[in-house]
Design a protein around this nucleic acid. Structure first.
Length: 108
DNA sequence: TGCTCGGCCGCAC
DNA sequence: CGTGCGGCCGAGC
């Protein structure tokens, strides 16, 4: 329930943005902890297989930093890609490695 | 209201 | 391995 409540809040905040961004963020939130998905994966998932750049843009503007784990999104070739958030790729890698560890340890 | 520019990419050459 | 172009959305002018 609490999770739902949080989701509700997020949705409220999301209403101020475009559907495209919402779609991107939603898809992003569905990524399990300790795992990663590619920008293309998101693009295809939201129905715009070619809008990978738009996806990147949306993630870059992501105002829901911790709620929407945009750091779990990497390039389709397996590299980290870019990261506009504070900390840059450094932070992104840290988060990924950290979450991966947690996942293995606590199995969430 | 309409056009232009930039972006956390993807793919072909 | 490096470079260029393609296709898409959001935001600014």
């Amino acid at each position: 329930m609490k999770n739902n409540n949080k989701m509700k809040k997020i949705k409220e905040a999301m209403k101020a943005y475009t559907v495209f961004q919402r779609a991107v963020w939603m898809a992003c939130m569905t990524i399990p902890r300790g795992q990663t998905r590619s920008y293309k994966w998101i693009a295809e998932r939201i129905g715009h297989p070619k809008a990978v750049r738009a996806v990147g843009s949306a993630l870059g503007k992501n105002p829901f930093a911790p709620l929407v784990p945009c750091h779990r999104v990497i390039k389709s070739d397996g590299t980290i890609g870019g990261f506009s958030a504070p900390g840059g790729l450094k932070a992104k890698r840290s988060l990924l490695s950290l979450e991966a560890k947690q996942f293995r340890c606590k199995a969430v």
